[in-house]
Simulated assay, not measured.
Amino acid sequence: MKATKLQYSTREINRDFKIKVYGYTEEGKKVDKLVGVSGLILLIGTEHANKQIERAYKSGQDKCVCKLRRGLKVTYYAH
């Protein structure tokens, strides 16, 4: 298994965004809460987190919504 690391530092991401996760986890539990970078990585993994954070930075808007096929919706709110 290839270990990947984040493109941005955890401190920078937490400073620039509030991250809200809504939907169902892989175990079928319902989730609706604010998470930090570590919580995001636990839920979606490093590769998906890198893609979504890059998308949130490029959007330049106040809110960026990213949806996963497994029923999880991650919203990035810019400060």
Rank of each mutant, 00 (worst) to 15 (best):
M1N: 11
M1Y: 13
K2Y: 12
A3T: 12
A3Q: 15
K5D: 12
K5C: 07
L6V: 04
L6C: 08
L6S: 05
Q7K: 14
Q7T: 14
Y8K: 09
S9W: 01
S9F: 03
S9M: 07
T10Y: 11
T10E: 15
R11H: 12
R11V: 13
R11K: 15
R11E: 14
E12I: 08
N14P: 01
R15S: 02
D16S: 11
I19T: 02
K20I: 02
V21K: 06
V21Y: 04
V21D: 00
Y22F: 13
Y22R: 05
G23C: 03
Y24N: 10
Y24K: 12
Y24M: 09
T25M: 03
T25N: 00
T25E: 01
E26M: 02
E27D: 14
E27C: 10
G28A: 12
G28Q: 02
K29W: 04
K29C: 10
K29T: 10
K29P: 04
K29H: 06
K29A: 14
K30L: 12
V31A: 01
D32V: 00
L34Y: 15
L34T: 15
L34Q: 12
L34D: 14
V35K: 01
V35P: 01
V35T: 04
V35S: 01
G36Y: 04
G36K: 00
G36N: 08
V37Q: 01
V37A: 07
V37D: 04
S38F: 10
G39D: 01
G39L: 02
L40W: 02
I41G: 02
I41N: 03
I41M: 09
I41A: 06
L43C: 04
L43K: 06
L43R: 03
L43N: 03
I44T: 06
I44F: 05
I44Q: 06
G45N: 02
T46C: 11
T46A: 06
E47M: 04
E47H: 06
E47Y: 03
E47L: 11
E47V: 12
A49N: 00
A49I: 03
A49C: 06
N50E: 04
N50S: 05
N50L: 07
N50A: 00
K51E: 14
K51V: 12
K51N: 11
Q52D: 11
I53P: 03
I53S: 09
E54I: 09
R55N: 13
R55D: 10
R55F: 11
A56K: 05
A56P: 06
Y57N: 04
K58M: 11
K58D: 12
K58P: 05
K58V: 08
K58Y: 10
S59Q: 11
S59D: 11
G60I: 09
G60F: 02
G60A: 09
G60P: 00
D62T: 09
K63H: 03
K63N: 07
C64A: 08
C64Q: 13
C64E: 11
C66A: 07
C66S: 13
C66G: 03
K67H: 00
K67F: 04
K67C: 05
R69Y: 13
R70K: 15
G71R: 04
G71M: 08
G71V: 07
L72Q: 07
L72W: 01
L72I: 10
K73C: 08
V74A: 06
T75S: 07
T75P: 00
T75L: 06
Y76R: 05
Y76I: 09
Y76P: 07
Y77R: 01
Y77Q: 02
Y77I: 07
Y77E: 07
A78S: 12
A78D: 07
H79Y: 14
